[in-house]
Design a protein around this nucleic acid. Structure first.
Lengths: 173, 173
DNA sequence: AATAACATGTAACGCGTTACATGATTAC
DNA sequence: GTAATCATGTAACGCGTTACATGTTATT
């Protein structure tokens, strides 16, 4: 069901076509929160429209259809947001691989951790740039600043942990 | 494919039955890394056995079968571990809900963030207890200490972020 | 004797991936 | 005119959930 609410959430900000939504997933959601491809997005938009949670508000060139969230859609999204599950289902290949580090030897583990340290440093830098630019542009502090800060802190934590783990492996040699 | 490697990884530590593996998922993996139920685990074990990556090393009461990883299984697991994807697929409902915070009003957002701050504090305390006990029991520092530290730092970060976000919402009032 | 825990399985359905399929418009 | 981008769709298959199904052993 999450895909459905991810779409409603994006449409709650502004109307968009399936194509635009697909690109928003690629650029933003897929990196941090929820991955989906156009082959899943288009049918789900049709179902949302059939259920009256979104509606077509414009048709353009090349069969482009712009969807907007309806009042029923906003209500449904709000209900979902205010009723989170007690425990979230976790399926995270990155963390799974960390759990399975113990199946590698010391050198192989180091070879896994180094790219993690480097990659998280790059993500940190990218996010810091994006945050600085947004801070300069918006006088108004926004909700988006909250999730950006969350991402930044998460990458910082991963980075520092990877360095700590590498140092620990060296020390225990 | 991740389920397959999660199972091989657990069996690389020690032989176990499908029932025991199911409980390990419930107690450990499902919380942090990978969720799976017995209805998925049993058929996958049969496929792994058919592929020669695990083998039955004991049969016990109530039709219990103890599986052990084979050399081919260890080789396959190692190959998988040493070849991570460039980008990981993310599907995390918790983070999705954070992204969609902006669809709520200020009070509703606060009502979402408070349980997050409290829940992460509880997880931190649990993990710290587990780490302290393990540190006291094992003289030997282990690989498992690395992933426990990762979890602890992640929950700390979530906790501190939620407090920061709550303060920011109050300040902007 | 009853209950909880142990132990494994399958079938129907829903969600997600990969590949195939088609065509219009814009920029060079 | 040709390549890139825009724009939407479907079909086959694989992964994951829910529910159904069955029986054994240990504990009280």
């Amino acid at each position: 069901m999450s895909l459905r609410y991810a779409l409603l959430g994006l449409l709650a900000e502004e109307p968009a076509s399936g194509y635009e939504l697909t690109r928003k997933f690629e650029r933003v959601l897929a990196r941090y929160a929820w991955h989906a491809q156009h082959s899943q997005i288009y049918p789900e938009l049709n179902r949302l429209a059939a259920d009256g949670l979104v509606e077509i508000v414009a048709e353009g060139a090349r069969g482009r259809r712009t969807y907007a969230i309806t009042d029923a859609g906003r209500a449904d999204l709000r209900t979902w947001m205010l009723d989170p599950p007690d425990v979230f289902t976790v399926r995270n290949e990155f963390v799974l691989r960390l759990f399975l580090l113990s199946t590698l030897d010391r050198d192989e583990a180091r070879a896994m951790l180094r790219p993690i340290a480097d990659g998280s440093a790059r993500e940190m830098a990218d996010l810091r740039d994006a945050i600085d630019k947004a801070d300069a542009a918006d006088a108004e502090p926004s909700f988006n600043r909250l999730i950006a800060e969350y991402g930044l802190r998460m990458f910082e934590t991963t980075h520092e942990w990877a360095l700590w783990a590498l140092a620990r492996l060296d020390r225990a040699e």
